[in-house]
Design a protein around this nucleic acid. Sequence first.
DNA 1: AGAATGATCCTCT
DNA 2: GAGGATCATTCTC
Length: 226
Amino acid sequence: MGQASEPPIAAGVGVLLGADFYQRPTLVIAQGLLGAVLVHESPAGCLCGRIVETEGYLTPGDDACHAYRGETPRNRVMFGPPGHAYVYRSYGMHDMLNVVTEHAGVAAAVLIRAVEPLEGAAVMAERRGLIGGARVATALSPRLLAGGPGRLCQALSIDRSLNGHDLTTTPLYLLAPSTPVEAGTVVQTTRIGITRSVDLPWRFYLRDSPAVSVRDRAAEARNRPI
DNA sequence: AGAATGATCCTCT
DNA sequence: GAGGATCATTCTC
């Protein structure tokens, strides 16, 4: 995991996920990131949350991956070294955060789809437009705060200026799960919002989290311990 | 240069 | 559950 030479970021809060964490199979990392903590030391304060939902995207063999037809200026970061942030804009209005995986030359990444706020929730609510007026009643919902890749980026103030950022450095980095995730609470199912390779079960989420963006009740029942 | 498309979210019904 | 918002990227001509 974290190399000894890494700076002592967030000492006492958690263990930094180092470069070697990301240089592994994409689906292993997608599951391994559940329970990890995403930290953004933004100008407005430290914004961080516990990751509860991820999706894997790989080449070759996955036509939903941005890089399935080769390298372009947009997806260039996915082809680079692991442990960097691939941030792109979707539907003309939402930015999305991905973690580059595997190794340089292989285009693969994990989309971070949802976090539970741990610090800076008030700032997140403000950034999400959930403060004031009639919307104050919904401000307490973790799903509306940072459940969904677009919501997450808006809440944590993550945008395309962080594309290519080295995730083992400030201001944006990840910390290992403080306690291991129980295997029986992980749900594996299909991905959201794609039109190609729709049947690949490459989405993972924590069954007991209220911040999960889209639930799959059948998969939850299937994974439930007897 | 123009057109289609999309790893979404919100607001209605 | 359906439709609109809104624009960067990519493909096609």
